[in-house]
């Protein structure tokens, strides 16, 4: 019984950790499918996390926080699109620039506006955070272990953003593989010349993809600072943007495998905190660091072609120029 409760709680923690990863990974799926390497997930998320916490702290409304989070991530996405699509600058360099700039800008603005040493104030007022939604009868159900605890902990008890994120997986699969827009988006990532010849604007499509990525990163950042925790702290994304990118690659740029990769990576995270100092039969104590490094090792193995084969969109990373 004890073990069963532990498993359910670990799975519930997995869902909470997976949410921002999945949002960022789907964000990356749109821009990467259009042929743009999106290393800037980290920076856009971090910027949104700051803006959301600042907005919520200033107005007392988590929804204003969400709005300012999305607006900030979209602005950063626009800057990225201008540098890489319009000016045909190096995508990796532009993204690194944005990541580094945002890492400094968040704490700088936080210090100037809130004077709390680079953080935003604790969000503890009513409505300042996206709190857990408790489904009907969840508290009663929790007393009946087998179906009840699953219902209470896994289905019920998450915040709105988690449920929206779950719905985003089939939605993005539909958009990418069942709509005209999705077909064109994938085409521009494989062969921009062909799309251009068909009279469709490569620039326009890539801008749209990068903007979608901005919106989703905005939601992901808002989740980090107003749902998963109560305010913005320095470097609070802690590499989640890169981990999301790894999950996207691990999921071979496809929605459902990416969902699986995010859950797997989040599970290692939830497991690491459970297994801290616990001695297992046969293997003994596994160092936490080894479990935490697992997603990165797995991604390297996949990229090396040792665990399946990940084929990136053909035109990824190449700026498109009509004259060439």
């Amino acid at each position: 019984m004890e073990t069963y409760t532990l498993i359910v709680l670990t799975l519930a923690a997995t869902i909470r950790v997976a949410t921002p990863l999945l949002l960022a990974a789907i964000a990356g799926m749109f821009s990467e499918r259009s042929g743009v390497v999106d290393l800037g997930l980290e920076g856009k998320m971090l910027g949104a996390a700051f803006a959301a916490a600042a907005g919520s702290a200033a107005t007392g409304s988590a929804w204003v926080g969400l709005g300012s989070g999305i607006a900030t991530a979209v602005l950063l996405a626009l800057l990225f699109a201008y540098a890489t699509v319009t000016q045909r600058g190096n995508q990796v360099v532009a993204a690194m620039a944005i990541n580094i700039m945002v890492a400094g800008l968040g704490p700088t603005l936080a210090l100037a506006w809130f004077n709390l040493g680079g953080q935003t104030p604790q969000l503890d007022g009513p409505g300042q955070r996206f709190t857990s939604l408790v489904w009907p009868w969840a508290n009663t159900a929790a007393e009946y272990p087998l179906p009840g605890l699953l219902y209470a902990q896994l289905l019920s008890g998450h915040n709105l953003i988690v449920y929206v994120t779950v719905a985003l997986v089939p939605l993005s699969a539909w958009v990418l593989f069942r709509t005209r827009f999705g077909l064109r988006l994938r085409a521009v990532g494989e062969s921009p010349q062909a799309v251009d010849t068909a009279g469709i604007s490569v620039t326009g499509l890539r801008y749209q993809a990068i903007l979608i990525s901005g919106v989703l990163c905005g939601v992901a950042g808002t989740y980090l600072s107003t749902a998963a925790s109560a305010g913005f702290t320095r470097d609070m994304t802690a590499g989640k943007g890169y981990l999301a990118l790894a999950a996207l690659i691990f999921g071979k740029w496809k929605p459902y495998p990416t969902l699986f990769a995010c859950l797997l990576f989040a599970f290692t995270d939830a497991l690491a905190s459970r297994l801290q100092g616990v001695s297992l039969p046969l293997v003994g104590v596994i160092p936490v660091q080894a479990i935490l490094a697992l997603p990165y090792v797995l991604t390297v193995l996949l990229l090396a072609g040792f665990v399946g084969k990940a084929t990136a969109p053909a035109a990824i990373g190449l700026p498109y120029s009509k004259e060439k």
Binding site: V93, M96, I98, G104, G117, G118
Partner: peptide
């Protein structure tokens, strides 16, 4: 008092942006 060392990181980011990504501008 209104500026912390993170301002330097902002400048680093901007230098990468202009010297790297936006050099064609």
């Amino acid at each position: 008092p209104k500026i912390n060392r993170d301002m330097v990181v902002v400048i680093q980011g901007l230098v990468i942006l202009f010297c790297g990504a936006l050099e064609n501008v």
